[in-house]
Design a binder for these strands. Structure first.
Length: 895
DNA sequence: GTTCTCACG
DNA sequence: ACGTACGTGAGAACT
């Protein structure tokens, strides 16, 4: 063991890290940049040093703090930002998890503690490396004490190193004289005043002549230059005070032994758990491959191969009590009668199943000659039929294999985690285990690495078994915890009555898919191609050279440097060439119009014409995915492909909707909520005037214009109406006069007047929005009408921009979230009704406030009524929900 | 993998 | 003084 010790000034380094590393937050919204930066600096130093001992010291202020007698200096230090403050206890947690000795003592700053330890160690003949961002520490430098000051530079950390010689070279004074230097020149960053008029150069000169502040004063008449002499004469007390402030204690009484500071193993399972929570992905590989493996858990995963054993297991499961309502169970205490379920599945075929029905064991049944897939499925379906409670991690993916309906007693723990906190990126079994069970299990990535699932299955049977069993076991355990927490958050009904049934609706929609006219899509793409080629040629001619028009970088250079266009707006990396910038340049050069058109057409071609074509399946339909755990507000999202952003605003783009066609013998019915978000706002704010406006069932923007601009309804101009419309939108988004002004091309002041008038017209809306922000700040989250929570960590940010964002989110999320809740209810009911009535018509798409149904020609009127009734009746608000249903032979016609 | 741009509600 | 609309997903370019 080396007799070298590394000492770290915790406060100083975390402070450096905070300002040196760009803002990072994990998906819970916890700020992590300072912790991340600290750990990186520390690991870099430890790697270099190969020391035998390590200690991190922290400040701990105390009422009897020795500097309290000079409150005007040390006491007025600006408070640190909340984002940093919050990270300090978390950093300590990380350090302790890594086994690192930390020291803090009431009344001492970290540098006093470090000074003391460094001196003690040095006296024992050890080598000391003292890491701090604070140059005060340089007074401790010696031939055995190395002061290391990290600098965060672009592309990494560089460290300045100081023994005695380096201090002398850089400051022209000995380490011991550093305090005299500070006494004379002061230190603005540390609130040390120094002597006015004496800077670094003069101070060094004086000290080289007189060595100390006291000695200089004793020979005050000899001090040069004149200005410094007079200032020192007058401010000698200040110099002494400053010197005292700068002096680091080396004789603190500490209960500290070297034994405790022995270099720990650092990369422990506990540390790994925290690194995972903070999402320090680049540091995962520092841990030994299986540090995160929960071997004790894996001992509970039992593989079963014989038919007898399999039968016994299923019998035990079928002997469990029938499931009761989850809501009742939560208040009564959750029954242990439940089964965690996970299928092992390769290329659409089941190869096994894992079931857990006690916390002691998870059984893995690998399909084989005796325990066949058919047998397994039959048994699982019986369990479902018998109403035994099941818990899974990602139910939608299991639905192809089981016969479950929205009334089955199966609960999805991934979805439950989403309802608890919709801000996370993933809701895998390891996330659930970490967030709700406080246990660390290896993720898929850690188990499989880059090996394909099939290869793991074939070559690493044990790993594959564990992977499946973790799902089952975690699902089993999590049901109790998550349903309790959902209940406590008041969100259990949302989960049970809306989110869970919706899984089945979305699954139905995905299976059904939407029919596409392949040939028409091809034709559409070809037409675009022709026009794109023409535009390309023209643009090259105007530019005088060929370049990649799709490259913002190249385009920016052509426009703003070669053609000298005005209004160049910069982005981080270069010129902005976005549509709104180009829009302002249209009068400058005809090439701008061509570029705008080119952009539009290439977008249509690549994303839609070509993009959609790759998703057309054998049945000539596109089976996109609807994701239920993506958005922060509760909306669903659509991927592979995104069917929620098919063009409509521009005619040319809109044409693409003609390729979406119904099955032969069917038509499309498309039903749209009219201004659902504004209606939700009217309801939630309970503003009489807004409610009244909606009850009149008239043009809301016009009514708003009439009231905001004090104009009789029939005299409202188009311009007034469109301004009012923009204000209405702004309100829903969490308005600011700046953005409204930008949107309407008016000044911030004028926009302010609009907003003021709007709020005068609808005073309860103002009250409502203010209350949301306040509620968000108080609770850390806001809620929709159906108790969907959205945490808003940004609201407690000290950064103006982030906090403002949080405020807008607080105003928008309950509105957007409630609208999302409502249409989800409508979807479930509509889909259910179509099934119950055994209709041929099927729900295909949801586009946030719109549902598209492929309707059999015999069912048009009936389905139109169902759609309208279920959508309008999904919620009873203080204002009516209006729905418009249209019919067409393609999606273009139906809108 | 990140950035820019743009399609939708 | 700060520097914005809220919520998404995809393709292309570039690092």
């Amino acid at each position: 063991m080396s007799d070298k010790i590394v000492l770290i000034d915790g406060n100083s380094i975390i402070n450096r890290a905070f300002y040196g590393v760009p803002d990072l937050t994990n998906s819970e919204g916890i700020h992590t940049n300072a912790i991340y930066g600290f750990i990186n600096i520390m690991l870099k130093i430890l790697e270099e040093e190969q020391a035998g001992y390590l200690t991190v010291a922290f400040d701990m202020k105390h009422p009897t703090f020795r500097h309290i007698k000079y409150p005007e200096y040390k006491g007025t230090r600006k408070g640190m930002p909340d984002e940093l403050r919050e990270q300090i206890p978390l950093l300590k947690e990380v350090l302790h998890a890594m086994g690192i000795r930390t020291v803090e003592k009431a009344g001492y700053e970290a540098d006093d503690i470090l000074g003391t330890i460094a001196t003690r160690c040095s006296e024992q003949g050890m080598k000391v490396s003292l890491v701090s961002g604070d140059r005060d520490l340089l007074q401790l430098a010696s031939d055995t004490i190395l002061i290391r000051i990290p600098k965060t530079k672009r592309g990494g950390t560089e460290i300045e190193n100081y023994n005695t010689a380096e201090v002398v070279e850089k400051y022209q004074v000995t380490p011991a004289q550093i305090i005299d230097l500070k006494g004379l020149m002061g230190d603005a960053s540390d609130n040390i005043p120094g002597v006015p008029g004496i800077g670094e150069k003069t101070a060094a000169k004086i000290l080289s002549a007189f060595e100390t502040v006291e000695n200089a004063y004793a020979h005050i008449d000899e001090v040069m230059p004149n200005k410094a002499r007079e200032s020192l004469r007058e401010h000698y007390d200040l110099a002494v005070l400053s010197k005292d402030l700068a002096t680091i204690k080396v004789d603190c009484e500490l209960e500290y032994t070297l034994e405790e500071a022995k270099m720990p193993s650092l990369f422990t399972p506990e540390a790994f758990a925290l690194f995972k929570r903070f999402e320090f992905k680049s540091l995962y590989n520092k841990f030994e491959g299986d540090v995160s493996r929960n071997d004790k858990l894996e001992e509970k995963f039992i593989e079963v191969t014989s038919k007898e054993e399999a039968e016994k297991i299923f019998q035990s499961i079928l002997a469990l009590k029938e499931a009761r309502d989850l809501k009742e169970l939560v208040t009564d205490g959750i029954s242990t009668d439940r089964v965690g379920l996970m299928f092992a599945c390769l290329e659409g075929t089941i190869v096994g199943v894992a079931v857990t029905y006690s916390e002691d064991t998870c059984y893995y049944l690998s399909a084989n000659e005796v325990v066949s897939v058919e047998y397994i499925l039959e048994q699982v379906n019986t369990i479902i039929e018998e109403n035994i409670m099941l818990s899974a991690v990602s139910l939608k993916e299991m639905l192809p294999y089981i016969q479950a309906t929205s009334t089955s007693k199966i609960y999805d723990m991934g979805l439950a985690s989403y309802v608890m906190n919709p801000l996370k990126d993933t809701y895998h079994y390891d996330d659930i285990a970490r967030d709700y069970l406080e246990i660390t299990v290896p993720s898929r990535e850690e188990l499989f690495g880059k090996t394909k699932e099939k290869e793991v299955f074939e070559n690493q049977k044990e790993v594959y078994k564990n992977f499946i069993c973790y799902h089952s076991y975690i699902a089993y355990l999590a049901l109790e915890k998550l349903s309790t927490q959902l209940y406590e958050a008041n969100s259990l009904e949302l989960f049970v009555d809306i989110e869970m049934p919706l899984i089945y609706t979305l699954y139905d929609m995905e299976c059904r898919g939407i029919r596409v006219n392949k040939e028409a899509l091809k034709e559409y793409g070809d037409q675009l191609e022709v026009r794109i080629k023409e535009l390309e040629k023209k643009i090259y001619e105007h530019a005088g050279e060929e370049f990649n028009i799709n490259s913002p970088k190249q385009l920016g250079i052509i426009l703003f440097e070669k053609l000298h266009m005005p209004f160049a707006k910069k982005t981080k990396t270069g010129y902005s060439t976005s549509a709104d910038v180009l829009e302002k340049l249209r009068s400058e050069d005809p090439v701008i119009d061509e570029i705008l058109e080119y952009r539009q057409l290439t977008k249509l071609k690549s994303t839609y014409a070509d993009g959609l074509a790759t998703y057309i399946a054998e049945d000539n339909r596109i089976h996109g995915k609807f994701n239920q755990t993506i958005t922060a507000t509760g909306r669903i999202s659509s991927t592979e492909p995104n069917l929620q952003n098919i063009p409509i605003r521009m005619e040319l783009g809109r044409q693409i909707r003609k390729v979406f066609i119904p099955e032969d013998g069917y038509v499309f019915l498309d039903a749209d909520y009219s201004q659902i978000e504004l209606r939700v706002l009217a309801h939630m704010s309970d503003d009489e005037r807004l409610i009244e406006a909606y009850k009149q069932e008239q043009d809301i923007h016009k009514i708003t214009a009439s009231q905001v601009f004090h104009t009789p309804l029939n005299e409202v101009t188009n311009a007034q109406r469109s301004n009012a419309k923009a204000v209405n939108f702004g309100i829903v988004y969490g308005i600011s006069s700046f953005s409204l002004g930008q949107d309407l091309n008016i000044t911030k002041k004028e926009a302010d007047v609009y907003i003021k008038k709007y709020f005068e017209t609808y005073p309860r809306v103002k009250e409502f929005l203010d209350n949301l922000v306040e509620e968000g700040k108080k609770n850390g989250y806001v809620t929709s009408l159906f108790n969907r929570r959205r945490p808003i960590p940004e609201l407690s940010s000290s950064n103006f921009m982030q906090r403002s964002f949080g405020e807008r989110v607080a105003m928008n999320s309950p509105i957007q979230g409630t609208a999302a809740d409502i249409i989800k209810i409508a979807m479930i009911r509509t889909n259910q009704k179509l099934k119950d009535l055994k209709l041929k018509s099927r729900l295909l798409l949801q586009i946030h406030d719109e549902l598209l149904i492929e309707t059999h020609k015999d069912e048009i009127e009936q389905v139109a009524n169902i759609l309208k009734d279920e959508m309008q009746g999904a919620a009873t608000l203080h204002v009516p929900l209006e729905v418009e249903v249209k019919q067409g032979n393609n999606w273009y016609e139906a809108k």
